[in-house]
Design a binder for these strands. Structure first.
Length: 469
RNA sequence: GGUCCCAUCGUCUAGCGGCCUAGGACGCUGGCCUCUCACGCCGGAGACACGGGUUCGAUUCCCGUUGGGACCA
């Protein structure tokens, strides 16, 4: 079997989109599974909408997700000579012809055809031309077959048949000298020796034309695999109005790349009942045979669940680093004045369990990092009442001299205190929690006290007592 | 409008003629655990779009209908 060569070919006209990432992922997994080559190609012929900034964002997104490429990134704008020489060849072989029709004329005739109930297909007016039309720059059209049918043998859909008479002579080179999408793709895939074209479903209708181009160019078409689309909750094509759709946004929202990869892999692909896949498992188990045909709705809740799972699995040192990045970004922590690494890891370890995203973790870390807390008035009214003040004072007194200042020792202090007073633990723990964090939700109170440290703890309990005053 | 694709719980999916009174996961929900919130554990509700065939037997094969999507303009 020949070596597998696949490609991902995004247009740099904006952010790296979730749908695009899934396509990239399946190509990447396919390549890695078969120990093949993964080519990255930037389809930037649309000069008005393509930007270098977009290219950078796309490459960053790929790197963030751990999808490395073996060749490229190639840019179509650097390959114009290649497209033109292929156009020349087709013209010479009479497989293409110049077309001088203006957009207005084409539009008029199209409407005319439709009004007459005929398919709006190019009428080959210019095919019979023997001399150039004065004062006009021609486009080049591909002379397609009008008899028989073209069959797309798709690895996911099976054989899909198109009648050739439905296909019209597509423009391969525009009058401004730029190749059209369908032509550039074919030339690129031929010259880059792509063996498997794995792409979105939205290109299935383009495929028969492309197959004809392969044939005209004298090349065997690659294998095709058309992936089902990813839809928004309203079952239409995923787009901006569905919320976050760019990979970078997920990074900013506090998602781990492995969570996004795992989630995207399971969108349209499955391996029995398994939900959690490591990168290596994905590579080992990925197969086009297990890709579904139906479009999939993007479900943010399941992504959150996976993210939570991967946060639990992640190395605390790594999480501490990511958390620090977020804190720095918000200006909560200044560069050069970061808390000690070991302490950050301890903090992370008590926050991990209830963090579904890094953003959540950042929020819950604030009482431990900042000098001041934001007091939730409702929590204060409910828990910081006059009758708990003496108990809080007593606790502060005990904690002032407690050695060692650890989870277990703090626990003993709490137990002694509530036993002596004959109250339930919650009667003490909740007021302390509110005093220390400003709210009613936090990790276990002994953990909170140990990690927060004696100074902050005493200061805040005393402040709470003062507030009850 | 034409062409093409698709159709299992709300969502992601398993199922490739009998193992299915349809399995798993997210979400929802009842309970347990418990210093709060989570986590975790145990339980529950919840789907084969419809109609014809084929077959001893259809979620599974074929046809049609309906519904959704994409592409071309």
């Amino acid at each position: 079997m020949s070596t597998v060569r696949v490609r991902f070919a995004p247009s740099p006209t904006g952010a790296l989109h979730i749908g695009g990432v899934r396509t990239a992922l399946f190509n990447w997994l396919f390549a890695r599974h078969h120990q093949g080559t993964f080519v990255l190609r930037v389809e930037d012929t649309d000069k008005t909408r393509s930007t270098d900034e977009s290219i950078r964002i796309i490459l960053d997104g790929m790197k963030w997700l751990g999808m490395d490429w073996d060749e490229g990134p190639f840019r179509q704008t650097e390959r114009m000579d290649i497209y033109r020489s292929h156009v020349e060849r087709l013209l010479k072989e009479k497989k293409a012809y110049y077309c001088y029709c203006s957009p207005e004329e084409l539009d008029f005739r199209r409407k005319e055809a439709m009004a007459a109930g005929r398919p709006p297909k190019y009428d080959r007016k210019c095919l019979s031309l023997t001399a150039p039309v004065e004062g006009r720059t021609p486009a080049v059209r591909f002379l397609s077959q009008d008899d028989g049918e073209t069959i797309v043998r798709d690895l996911i859909r099976g054989a899909v048949t198109f009648e050739n008479k439905q296909l019209d002579d597509l423009i391969i080179l525009r009058s401004d000298g730029l190749p059209t999408y369908n032509f550039a793709v074919v030339v690129d895939d031929v010259t880059m020796h792509i063996t498997h074209v794995i792409r979105g479903d939205d290109h299935l209708n383009n495929t028969p034309r492309q197959i004809q181009l392969y044939q005209a160019l004298g090349h065997e078409p690659p294998a095709f695999a058309h992936l089902p689309m990813i839809l928004g909750p309203d079952k239409t094509k995923l787009s901006k109005r569905h919320g976050a759709t760019a990979v970078t946004e997920y990074a900013d929202l506090g998602y781990l790349p492995e969570a996004l990869v795992n989630y995207l892999a399971r969108l349209g692909w499955s391996s029995g009942d398994q939900e959690i896949f490591s990168r290596d498992e994905l590579i080992a188990k990925f197969s086009l045979d297990n890709v579904g045909k139906a479009p999939a709705v993007f479900n943010p809740e399941k992504l959150v669940w996976l993210n939570h799972h991967y946060i639990q699995q992640a190395d605390p040192a790594r999480l501490a680093g990511l958390l620090l990045d977020l804190l720095r970004k918000d200006g909560v922590v200044q560069a050069g004045k970061e808390p000690e690494g070991a302490w950050m890891q301890k903090l992370v370890s008590i926050l991990t369990e209830r963090s579904h995203t890094l953003l959540e973790m950042k929020t819950s870390s604030l009482p431990f990092i900042q000098d001041d807390i934001t007091m939730d008035e409702k929590a204060k009214a409910k828990h910081l009442t006059p009758e708990v003040a003496p108990m809080l004072s007593e606790l502060a007194a005990s904690l002032r001299t407690l050695e060692p200042f650890t989870h277990d020792a703090v626990e003993k202090t709490f137990n002694d205190l509530v036993n002596a007073r004959g109250v339930k633990l919650g009667k003490l723990a909740q007021p302390v929690r509110v005093a220390l964090t400003g709210g009613t939700v936090s990790p276990g109170i002994y953990d909170v006290i140990e990690v927060m440290g004696r100074d902050k703890v005493l200061k805040r309990i005393e402040a709470a007592v003062g507030m009850i005053g």
